[in-house]
């Protein structure tokens, strides 16, 4: 920090700077945390407490709101749908992206850079603009209101980001590793499954985490492409089935807390991977 000289001026300035710095850091900490704390707190209150004393702690905290939420809103089914969609998205996206990433990073062929640039440029496209073609394509293929549809759409939307992450990780693998494998008689496919894939595990985990969080949280396409409880995800559940909660805010808050747990848990365990992935994007653009 700044040097402290004999005179009073700079010292006072330095103290002020430290206070200001921590004021800024604490303010943004509050912005990030207070709405979530408020949500969790309210999920343990009674409806009367929520209405009359918004800032107090719950008098008798219990899980009754959570039990009500699970009972009322078809929540278990919606939860299961979301798990299927998110896991399916991760599996499909990683399979496709790692195969393409392998030939984009480890093979020399004509047009490679063009293909990579086009795929990665997909990140700049506002998917929002594709509501009409997505809807008409999905209905024409008879895929409307099916879980597999969301898997396909989410896996596809995440292709540009995953290709970028997976390709940059695979490029960093030293040539010698593959050369040794080739001398040992590895085929093309074995080079992929036995050498490149295991060595790019870290990049796959990062890409997979992004896919999971995206698929778990996505709202618009799920709303557009599904209509029944058999294919709707948890996000639509807490959005639309809250009409059941019209008088039960406490139950609604409990349902929201349950809906954010998986992505929060993924973040708690994998935040280093996520931050590394974002940083890779920053360093390369």
């Amino acid at each position: 920090m700044s040097k402290i000289y004999g005179s009073k001026g700079p010292r006072l300035g330095a103290v002020l700077a430290v206070i200001l710095k921590w004021a800024v850091l604490v303010f943004f900490l509050a912005v990030a945390v207070i709405p979530l704390l408020w949500l969790v707190l309210n999920s343990f209150k009674t409806n009367l407490e929520i209405q009359t004393s918004p800032f107090s702690l719950p008098a008798r905290p219990g899980f009754v709101n959570y039990a009500n939420a699970m009972a009322m809103a078809n929540l278990p089914r919606l939860f299961l749908n979301s798990v299927i969609v998110a896991v399916g998205t991760v599996v499909l996206n990683l399979t496709a992206s790692s195969m393409a990433g392998f030939v984009l990073a480890r093979e020399a062929w004509k047009g490679r850079e063009t293909v990579r640039t086009v795929l990665e440029a997909g990140v700049l496209v506002p998917i929002l603009a594709f509501m009409v073609p997505y809807f008409t394509l999905v209905t024409r293929l008879g895929l409307y209101d099916k879980l597999v549809t969301l898997v396909l759409v989410y896996a596809a939307i995440n292709v540009p980001v995953s290709i970028f992450l997976v390709t940059s990780f695979m490029r960093a693998i030293p040539r010698e590793m593959e050369e040794a494998a080739i001398i040992d008689g590895c085929s093309f496919v074995q080079r992929f499954t036995k050498v490149v894939l295991p060595l790019s595990r870290s990049g796959l985990v990062t890409a997979g985490t992004f896919c999971f969080i995206y698929a778990w949280n996505e709202f618009l396409m799920a709303m557009l492409l599904t209509s029944s409880i058999s294919a709707r995800t948890i996000q639509l559940g807490i959005r639309f089935f809250t009409s059941q909660f019209i008088t039960d805010y406490a139950g609604m808050f409990a349902a929201i807390v349950l809906s954010i747990l998986p992505s929060v848990l993924a973040y708690v365990f994998l935040h280093n991977k996520i931050i590394a992935g974002l940083t890779a994007g920053a360093v390369k653009g």
Binding site: A32, V33, P35, L36, L39, I213, W216, N217, F219, Q235, I238, R239, I256, S259, I260, S263, V264, A266, Y267, I274
Partner: peptide, 9 residues
Amino acid sequence: LPNVISTVA
């Protein structure tokens, strides 16, 4: 952290 929480929530 808020960036990993759904916009719906």
